[in-house]
């Protein structure tokens, strides 16, 4: 246990931190939701991750995603791993730099206790729900966090014991409703909070 993790014991106690550290979290999509959610989880003591994204960091990601200017053009998987390791150098991270599909999703995240849907396209959100809604794993998804203002509308909806949906369920990203840091980060943080409370409550 490193000094960062020892400092977390004051917040969670040893039994709590043990629960957190033994949980494997899979994150599908490392954009505004996935990158910020993973940062919240690492700061909360989680150390085992499977991170999946095929994309590279782009300039227009930097308005909300947990990357830096000098990482533009590089794989999101590699960059996020590097950034998270700066918070806790002892993370156990598996990177999957490929597109998630109906055929590979269950295999990629097979070892996870928790799966976070953090894609931006509806088609992929549906795909993840179809694969993981009945999987027995905790499945946390998000829908509706574009634009600005009225951020109290971004709520956590319990679908069932193993499934939670975060968002206002109506603010779709579009020309006049871009994805912006405050609302996207709120949704990502709420996804992380669902996971933290679920793990500590076990």
């Amino acid at each position: 246990m490193n000094v960062f993790e020892e400092a977390l014991i004051q917040y969670f106690g040893k039994p709590g931190l043990d629960k957190i550290q033994s949980t494997v979290v899979g994150i599908a999509g490392l954009g505004g939701l996935g990158s910020n959610c993973s940062a919240c989880l690492v700061r909360s003591g989680f150390r085992k991750f499977i991170l999946a994204d095929f994309d590279k960091v782009e300039l227009n990601n930097l308005n909300r995603q947990f990357y830096f200017l000098d990482q533009v053009g590089l794989n999101k998987t590699d960059c996020l791993k590097a950034n998270l390791l700066r918070i806790n150098p002892d993370l156990d991270i598996t990177l999957v730099t490929q597109k998630i599909s109906k055929d590979n999703a269950a295999v990629v995240f097979a070892d996870c206790d928790v799966v976070v849907e953090a894609f931006d396209k509806v088609e992929y959100k549906c795909l993840m729900a179809e694969v993981f809604l009945g999987s027995g794993k905790l499945f946390v998804s998000a829908s509706g966090m574009a634009g600005w203002g009225n951020s109290d509308a971004i709520r956590i909806k319990k679908i069932k014991d193993s499934c939670f949906l975060v968002g206002d369920n109506c603010s779709e990203v579009a020309g006049l409703l871009p994805p912006c840091a405050p609302r996207v980060t709120i949704a990502a943080a709420k996804e992380a909070d669902v996971i933290l409370s679920w793990v500590l409550g076990r």
Binding site: V122, S143, I159
Partner: peptide, 9 residues
């Protein structure tokens, strides 16, 4: 269980 989604993330 009925989940509906809008895009963005």
């Amino acid at each position: 269980e009925i989940l509906s989604f809008v895009g963005g993330g």
